Simulated assay, not measured.
Amino acid sequence: MRRVKLSDQIAEDLRRWIVRENLGPKDRLPNERALQDHYGCSRGTMREALKALEVEGLLIMHSGPNGGPEVQQTSAEIASRQLRQFLHFQKLDFKHVYELRRSMEVALALNVVDRLTAEHLTALEDNIRLCENANNEQERELARQAEVEFHDILAEASDNPILVFICQFLNGLIRDLVDYRAGSLQEHEAFGARNVAYHKEILAAFKARDRDAVAKAMDEHMCCAETSMQQLDAAFYSDLLSRR
């Protein structure tokens, strides 16, 4: 069994301390010297522990006589990026993403049916227009990224932080995979046109507050997107084989 470094043990205890004391942004922990005395560790070990929490985005270090570690809200983007980096060292493809994304996007759509404001609906309309205008050979990658933003707008309206994080995390994976494999898809314009058509249908269902229509349109949209993305995977791996 691998021995856990002292600095890692201290970092974990500080995480628990922050949660236990319900500390929030701008709250301060004791200064570095006081923490060093509390844990009975060397200056180097204490700095290593604090640096780990700073890299995570949980603390920010202030210098000077009144300096020290200050709690800050962990960024969802930082957490998502770290998890995506881990997954990209696995054999990851669109099939894995859509096994989860299909159900999550339907759940998200149903969650926000009664929460979408006029501003959200306008943002969705603007997004659809952007996708229509960008769906050509020169701007197809912009169109693919904008299509994912449609789903980010829905996430912004949700009151469920777990659902929001999962959906935005999956959207980030989709963006990453499209970036890495965009050159392999030969039918971008047809794919984009289908996405726009589904987004228009989903938007109409939202405006009508029709939960059944929202769920049906989103499920069909995810099924269609999954098929197109799996074609992208197949083309990508075919390209790899042809280069060997």
Rank of each mutant, 00 (worst) to 15 (best):
Q73W: 13
R101A: 14
M46Q: 00
R115F: 10
D114Y: 13
M61F: 06
H88L: 15
P65H: 06
L58K: 05
V71W: 04
A107Q: 15
I10T: 03
R16W: 02
L50M: 02
R101G: 09
H88S: 14
G67I: 04
I78H: 09
F86R: 15
S42H: 06
E21Y: 08
L14H: 00
E21G: 00
G44D: 10
T74E: 15
V71L: 01
E105A: 13
R16H: 04
F89V: 12
S7Q: 02
D13I: 04
D93P: 07
F89S: 14
R81C: 11
Q9A: 02
Q85S: 15
W17F: 02
L92P: 10
V4K: 08
L6E: 05
L110N: 12
R84S: 15
F86L: 15
H38F: 12
P30K: 00
Q36M: 12
D37S: 07
D13P: 00
H88G: 14
Y98I: 08
N66E: 10
Y39T: 04
H96D: 13
S42Y: 03
R20G: 02
K95N: 15
L58N: 05
M46T: 02
L23R: 01
L100T: 11
L59D: 00
E21S: 03
T74L: 15
M61V: 07
L23T: 02
V97G: 08
C41N: 06
Q72R: 14
L87R: 12
I10N: 02
Q90G: 15
I60N: 07
Q9P: 00
S75H: 08
H96P: 05
G40N: 09
C41Y: 07
E12F: 02
P69W: 01
L87T: 13
R115A: 13
I18D: 03
G64L: 06
C41P: 09
L116D: 06
A79D: 12
V112G: 04
L6P: 00
V112E: 11
G57R: 04
K95M: 08
G57V: 05
K51D: 14
L108D: 08
E99A: 14
W17H: 05
K91D: 15
F94C: 06
Q36W: 06
L14W: 01
P30F: 00
N111R: 14
Q90M: 13
R115M: 10
S7D: 03
A34D: 13
